[in-house]
Amino acid sequence: MTEGRLTLEGVTKLFPVRKRVFTLKVRNFVHAVDNVSMGVERGEMFGLVGESGCGKTTTGKLIVKLLEPTRGKITVDGVDVTRIRRGKPLRAFRRKVQMIFQDPYESLNPRFTVYDTVAEPLGLQGLRSLAEREATVAEILSAVGLTPPETFMFRFPHELSGGQRQRVAIARAMVIRPQFVVADEPTSMLDVSIRAGVMDLLVALRRELGVSYLYVTHDLAVARYMCDRMAVMYLGKIVEQGPVEEVLRNPVHPYTRALISAVPVPDPTVRRDPPDIRGDVAAPIDPPPQCRFLSRCPKSGTVCERNNHPDLEEVLPGHLVACYRARD
C-alpha cells in the first residue's frame, strides 16, 4: 500500500552561509532540516508545527521539489522524489503533488486573471483542450466557493479580497486533482471571519477529492482544528509526533510543553502557567551534536550533555518523542 503515501527518511537540508573571519573564508551550514523522518498516509491531514525558522516550510518545499535535500530520501507513491528526472517524469510528479502558499497577496501573478491563474496548471500539464479548460476552471471555482464562477473568472487579483485570493490559490492547486498537497500556513494572513471558511473548505476538499495534506502552521489551535496527526519541529528536528489531541493533552517533550503553555487562550477565565523554557532561539548554524533543545531545556541532565541528539522513540502507540528524559 504505497498509493498516495508520502514518506521522508533521514531528510536533511543544509544551507551554506558564508562568513569572513579576517581574510579567511569560512563556510558554515544552517541545518534547516536535520535528519527528519516521517510518513503521511493517504487521505490524512498531517500538521507540521513550529516557530518561525524551525524548518517547517523548508520541509514542505523539499516535498514539492522546490528544493533538493542535501541527504535523505523522500518518496511519494513509493517513487523516490529526489531521483525524478526532468521533463516528462517531473511533470507527472507535479500532477500528483501541489502546494498552497501562505501569502495570497504575493502568490498570484498580478497580471493574470483568475482564469489564467487557475488554468495555468492545466496548460502546463497539457490537460484538456482549450474549450474544456473553461468548464473545468468554472467547476473548480464553484468548488472553492467562488460562485457564480463567471463573475470571478476574468477578474485580476487586485480586484479580490484576501479570502477570495486564497480561494483562487487553492483552486489552482486543486484543479489538476493532486493526491498530495502541502499547505503552507494558508490561513495565517486571513482575517478571522474569513479564516474559518477557508479552513473548512480545505477539509471539504480533502473529503471530496481524497487529497492528503501536509499542513504547515505555527498555530497549534489551527493544527488542532485541521489535523489528525502532527509533528512539532524545533531547529530542524522533529521533537514530538503523534495524534493531535494526544500530543496536546499529554505533551512529553519539554519544548512541546512550553509551546502549548505559551498559546494564548480566547477565554478570560482561564489562567495559563508561564512556559517553562529558558533563553531565545538561536539559528542552527553548525549546531553541536547534542540535543538541540539542551540550552533551553528545564529538564536537561548529564545524559543529555553526554549524548548526541536523541532519536524519536515511541512512548505510547503512535506517540513519538525525541527526548532522553521522556520517561522520567
Binding site: F101, D103, L108, E120, P121
Partner: peptide, 17 residues
C-alpha cells in the same frame, strides 16, 4: 522571488515557460 513563481514551478512550468 515572488511565490507565484514557485507556484508556477510546482504546477509544472519549465524555466523558459
Amino acid at each position: 522571488v515572488k511565490p507565484y513563481i514557485e507556484a508556477a514551478k510546482v504546477a509544472g512550468g519549465s524555466s523558459w515557460q
